[in-house]
């Protein structure tokens, strides 16, 4: 059993599925006014990448939320399988020493 689902939304994979009337689903990532990284904000439907960006602009940035938009067709996202949550994530629960909280940081270092 694999813990990785190569396509998180297999039913939207156009190679396998019969022709459909629904537009494909896109995941939208927005870089905020002050943020460095793009963050996932939600998903929407669009016929192609250009319209996905335009729809994202209209749906997710109408209150001046962003300065950059990424759109990725959902079927291209590989994701972990929810039922494999145990083996994937539980082993790290008991390893508190991996948190860098056991060190005293000198004041002169400033904000880290």
């Amino acid at each position: 059993m694999s813990s990785v689902n190569p396509s998180a939304y297999p039913d939207t994979d156009s190679d396998a599925a019969p022709p459909r009337k629904e537009w494909p689903l896109w995941e939208i990532f927005i870089r905020g006014q002050h943020g460095m990284s793009h963050r996932h904000v939600g998903s929407l439907h669009a016929p192609d990448s250009e319209m996905a960006i335009k729809n994202a602009r209209d749906v997710y940035t109408r209150r001046n939320e962003g300065v950059s938009i990424w759109a990725v067709e959902s079927r291209h996202i590989a994701a972990t399988v929810p039922s494999e949550k145990g083996p994937m994530f539980e082993p790290s629960e008991s390893k508190v020493y991996r948190h860098p909280t056991f060190y005293d940081i000198p004041d002169e270092v400033g904000h880290m």
Binding site: W23, L44, H45, A46, N55, D58, V59, R62
Partner: peptide, 11 residues
């Protein structure tokens, strides 16, 4: 016809 167009038209 679709939510995305609805919002775009309202904008």
């Amino acid at each position: 016809p679709v939510l995305e167009e609805d919002i775009a038209l309202a904008n």
